[in-house]
Computed example of a mutant assay.
Amino acid sequence: MNTTTHTDHHRPVVALTLGDPAGIGPELIAKLLAQTDVCQRANVVLVGDPWLWEQGQQVAGLHVSVEPVDDLVDVRGRAHMEMPAFVAMNTVAPEQVHRGQAEAAGGTSVLKVLDACMDAALAHDIDAICFAPLNKFAMKLGGMKHEDELHHFATHLGVKNYFCEFNTLGHLWTSRVSSHVPLKDAAGLLDKGRIKDATRLIYRSLQANGIEAPKVAVAGFNPHNGDGGTCGREEIDIIAPAVKELNDEGLPVSGPYPADTIFLKARDGELDAIVTMYHDQGQIAIKLMGFSQGVTVQGGLPIPITTPAHGTAYDIAGRGSANVSAIANAFAIACRMGTALRTPV
C-alpha cells in the first residue's frame, strides 16, 4: 500500500555519503540509517560503493534495507520513502583500501562521490548533503587542488561570494574570519569586510536553521581584547568599527569581547553564535565543550553541506565503536536547512 502523503514530497532530499573508505564513515552511516526516525525527516539517498556500504553494516553489526535507485535525478519523485534510496557508484576497489591509512585511492573515491552529489544539487535534484568524515591529505593525494574540501565545494558550485566553515555544538555556532592558514598569517587577514561577511553569513544561516533572531557576538583578537591598545590595536582599528557598521545596517550583533571569556557567555546560553578571528580560537572551545557532538557546516554555499566535526578516526576504524552522535547532529542540521532552502518543484 502506498502510504506516502502529499506532504512527503515537501521533505528535503538529503544525500548521505560514506566518507573516507579507510575510516569510520561507513560504520557511522550504517548506525545513522538504523535510527527509526531518519526517513521521517527527509527523503534520504545514500551515495557510494556497494561493497563499502556492506562493509559498514558488517562493522556496525547492523542490516539496513535500502531502495536501489538508478540515478540521483530519480530520488525526488519516489513514491515510497520509508527506507533510504541507494545510488550505487563504483569509485574504489576493496583491494585499494587499507583500513586506517590515508591513500590516494580513498581520496579519489571521496571526490568522485561528493562531486556527483554537488552536480545533483546544481541540477536541483537534491537539497542538502551530509558527508561522513574525510581526510584532507588523502583527498590531496587523490587529486584535490584546494587547501580543503570547503574551497573545493565552493569552486565546484561556482561560489563567488564570501564562504567559511561554521562549527556547531548544540545550539551554539561559530564562524571564522580566517581558517586553514598559518597562525602567523591570521592577523594579516583581519579586515572589516571579512568580519562583516562572516557575521552576516552566520546570522543568515542561523535563521535558515530555524532561529528567527539569532544572538550573535564577535570575539576580539588580542589577549584581553587588546587592553585598550597595549596588547594590540586590532579591536580598536578593525573589529569594533566592523561591529558598529553592522549595527548601522540593522544587524543586532555585539562585541568585540575578550576571546577567553566570550565562550562563557555562550555556555550559559546568552549567545547563539560567535564570530571568531582564526581557526583555533573557536575550535578549541567547541571541541572541549563536546568533541563527540560537534558539527561542521560549510557556510556560504548554495545548498547546506554538513559533516561531523571529528575526523576519520583511523585508529578505531573497523572496531564497531564509533560514536554516531555527531553525524546524527549533522544530518539533523542538513534536514532543517535543506527544508528552509530547498528548491521549489
Rank of each mutant, 00 (worst) to 15 (best):
E67I: 00
R200N: 12
I284T: 08
T174A: 15
M144A: 09
E212L: 11
A240E: 11
G300H: 04
S254F: 01
E235W: 07
G220L: 07
R11K: 15
T91P: 03
S175E: 13
V243H: 06
K31I: 00
T4A: 13
M139N: 10
T108I: 06
A102C: 13
A317K: 13
P302L: 07
F291G: 02
L190R: 01
M83I: 15
I286F: 00
K136I: 03
L46D: 04
T7P: 00
A22Q: 07
L16Y: 10
R76I: 08
A121I: 04
K265L: 15
A128C: 05
L246S: 02
D185W: 10
Q58Y: 09
E270S: 12
Q58G: 04
D70M: 05
V216W: 03
T343Q: 07
P50A: 15
V295L: 05
C39V: 07
K145N: 15
F331N: 03
G77W: 10
I284L: 11
L114H: 08
L150N: 11
P50C: 12
I236E: 12
L150Q: 06
T4Y: 00
P21W: 02
S179T: 15
H6T: 14
V92Q: 05
Q57T: 11
A259K: 03
E270I: 10
A120W: 01
V177E: 14
Y162W: 15
S321R: 12
D119L: 03
A22W: 09
G269Q: 01
E82C: 09
T312D: 13
N2K: 06
D260C: 05
G294N: 11
R204A: 15
P94W: 09
E147R: 15
R78F: 10
V253K: 05
V87R: 02
I262W: 05
W53R: 14
G226E: 12
Q281K: 10
G56A: 13
D248C: 01
L62N: 10
V87D: 11
V181E: 13
Q298T: 00
Q96W: 09
R76H: 11
A132E: 05
P84M: 07
G56V: 12
A15E: 03
D272I: 06
H98A: 10
V295A: 03
A334R: 01
L157F: 12
E249Y: 04
M89A: 08
C231D: 14
V177G: 13
C335T: 05
H124C: 06
S321H: 13
I202T: 11
A330K: 04
P258N: 06
V218D: 11
R200S: 07
H10R: 14
A326F: 11
E103G: 10
L288W: 00
A30C: 02
G300T: 04
I262C: 04
L32W: 00
L189V: 02
Y162D: 03
K192P: 00
F291S: 02
V324L: 04
S254K: 06
I239N: 06
A93Y: 07
P26T: 04
M89Y: 06
A88N: 06
T261Y: 11
H171P: 14
G338S: 07
A317E: 08
Y278W: 12
R99E: 13
G56Q: 14
P304N: 04
L288S: 10
P256G: 02
M289E: 05
I236K: 12
D49H: 10
H146L: 02
L72G: 03
G142K: 11
R41D: 12
P12L: 13
P21S: 04
M118Y: 06
A309P: 02
G106S: 12
N222V: 13
T108P: 08
